[in-house]
Design a binder for these strands. Structure first.
Lengths: 167, 167
DNA sequence: CTGCCTGCAAACTCTTTGCACGAAT
DNA sequence: ATTCGTGCAAAGAGTTTGCAGGCAG
């Protein structure tokens, strides 16, 4: 569940941008903020419909609303290079975080990476650029899986890109 | 142009994997290794056809050959989150590199990031994972553009994702 | 009322794939 | 001769968009 305070933040943001406060936008907002894990646009749509069976929210509106939510800093976009975009409620401060993606269970772990910002500006400045954002992502394999045959984590949508040249 | 030595490496790799040494694969190899910058599958196809106007190489074959080239370590895949994959001839050692992407001119700069590997293993181990690879990417804006209105660099395919909520 | 928002479905982009033919071994 | 490789076009996945009607302001 989302806090009423967050909803107000959202409505304020909408009005401030000259956008209308519609039922769909509020429903999508509620569904998004109620997520505990990373989620895709499709998963968000399911959740919206689950939370409000009577409501009519289309896929298109979800896709059109997601950018609004990320620009209002209520959500954070996470691209792990699987072809689909992931989103995450932006609880607390917008700390610099990196992702560790397990290639076995497809789970996304977030870890703080405070040095990233420093690094980005150091390198960018040298190139005559001003850093806007930085992403660090580690792909890894599950040790437990290798030993016991099972991974203790399981969920999340899997990468689209197929294994290559497995021979 | 690619060195004959590299071509031999490629042919050796193919045979070792039980793959056939075809004209198309060699043509694609030549075109790929002749690139100086990052390139997409589409750009590679254009280059293949430009270098060998008589040859018949299809888009499908380019897509099917790219994984072979990356697995033979002759190319490196670079995903900057634009929806299309970029490739780069893997000259010299496979050092840990990060990318700085200029949002104004869409150019991709590569910088060495030696600490990345250490960081990946530190964090992964703590999660019970074994790191496979890591990506660090900095998005930045061009200072020159902001001041003078022009960017000194210009080329490369641009991001697919459109600007959002520009109002 | 006016015009932004929405739903629907079609369009789009990049990439993958099924199938029948052609070529490497 | 066998297979694997290739070309073609269609399929796929995720996301965007044109259009007509609907609802917020």
């Amino acid at each position: 569940m989302s806090t009423p305070a967050a909803l107000e933040t959202f409505e304020r943001f909408l009005r401030q941008k000259g956008l209308r406060v519609t039922g769909q936008r509020k429903a999508i907002f509620e569904a998004a903020l109620s997520q505990k894990e990373h989620f895709t646009a499709e998963q968000l749509l399911e959740r919206v419909r689950a939370l409000d069976p009577g409501g009519r929210v289309s896929r298109a509106t979800v896709y059109r609303t997601l950018p609004v939510l990320t620009e209002s800093a209520l959500l954070r976009e996470v691209d792990i290079g699987t072809g689909e975009m992931f989103y995450m409620p932006n609880v607390g401060k917008v700390a610099q975080v990196a992702q560790v993606v397990c290639l076995d269970c497809d789970r996304i772990f977030e870890i703080s990476a405070p040095f990233m910002e420093w690094y980005g500006s150091t390198v960018s400045t040298r190139l005559g650029l001003t850093p806007v954002s930085q992403r660090l992502q580690v792909s890894a394999r599950c040790d437990t899986l290798k030993r016991t045959g099972t991974c203790r984590y399981r969920d999340q949508a899997g990468p689209r890109r197929k294994a290559r040249l497995t021979g």
